[in-house]
Design a protein around this nucleic acid. Structure first.
Lengths: 185, 185
DNA sequence: ACGGGGTGTTCAATATCCTGCACACATCTG
DNA sequence: CAGATGTGTGCAGGATATTGAACACCCCGT
């Protein structure tokens, strides 16, 4: 993301010009005055959210996209298996794919659950959404009130605010590739 | 994303209470008055972006996260391997993990590239970020000017605006589990 | 030279946001 | 019961965003 500390002006101008629109043209589509767009782009005013939304509707672009847009490139693209940062303890290990860059969109993990591994009876709860695919072995996943046994090729996807728990109840290690957003790692 | 058409009030209230903060407590941390937070949560005013940022700083939460957050639960959590929707052609097949719900945070895919499979010389380009881990076989990935050969356990992560291309130049099929955000599937 | 149509900026007036209080209602404690 | 502390809401007035119209500039065709 562009962090966008408070330089909404430059950000809006970049988006507007990227879409090949003049201040007047955008103003007409958005139902605001061209003067307002000029003022916003100079950071001489901090627009109300409703005004900013009107302006973005004229592009069109959602508020979420506006605040999430990124122009900077990711510093590292390729990761050899042995380059991945290893986290966790003996029973559960996570290999983080993305570098620890602030504001990246998601966390991609290569997880290994040893036999008996358990994320704990006090269920996990955090923000965002997560999903994964089982590559090898079996895992018992509890999400909310429901518990299921997942094998190779099986998958899951849920909002992380729902309490959840991973347990390897088998005798083989279990390997999962998962992604979560926003990144909690 | 929560789309968040313009009900910022309810959204802010949900976030604030989720973090266990009172209007006054948040106001103190944010350096604004409690009255303002009350007005915002009732949608009696549309806060300026600068004010909203001040408020979110008190939580703390970024503007991007605020406009991207989703509270709605996923309708389906568990997916058996044979339940996953299969897409693509013979040479490249994608199994989509998440249901086709609007506004989910990301797309999680189980991809299989047959020998010779190629996403094409006219490189792919779209918004967002994507990453993946190779499970089986080998794949040649080009991102921007760089090309690399990836094997089991290797991974990648890049912003999707950079032109990219996947090719299976080997004789074995290649299996990848990938995630992209925002979801393009 | 003169329009005419494009661009972004500036200024007074008006609409809206934001503050600094006071208020009303709860839940404790003595 | 009174009193202290917590919660969210309402209101007048000062601060700021937004409008509508004018301004200055540039480029192109006459």
């Amino acid at each position: 993301m562009s962090e966008l500390n408070l330089d909404i002006g430059a950000h809006l101008r970049a988006v507007r010009t990227m879409y090949g629109l003049s201040q007047r043209e955008l103003a007409k589509r958005a139902g605001v005055t061209n003067g307002l767009i000029s003022l916003i782009e100079q950071n001489r005013v901090s627009p109300s959210v409703s005004s900013l939304k009107k302006v973005l509707d004229g592009i069109p672009m959602s508020l979420a996209d506006f605040f999430t847009l990124d122009f900077t490139a990711s510093p590292q693209v390729f990761f050899r298996s042995d380059e991945l940062a290893v986290m966790g303890d003996r029973s559960v290990t996570y290999k983080l794919v993305a570098p620890r860059r602030p504001n990246r969109a998601m966390a991609l993990l290569h997880e290994k659950y040893a036999p008996g591994a358990d994320t704990g009876a006090d269920m996990l709860r955090h923000q965002g959404e997560e999903g994964g695919v089982v590559v090898e072995g079996h895992i018992e996943l509890t999400v909310g009130a429901e518990t299921r046994q997942l094998g190779p090729g099986d998958a899951y996807y849920f909002t992380s605010a729902i309490p959840h728990r991973f347990r390897n109840t088998g005798v083989e290690p279990c390997e999962i590739i998962s992604a979560s957003t926003p990144p909690t790692f």
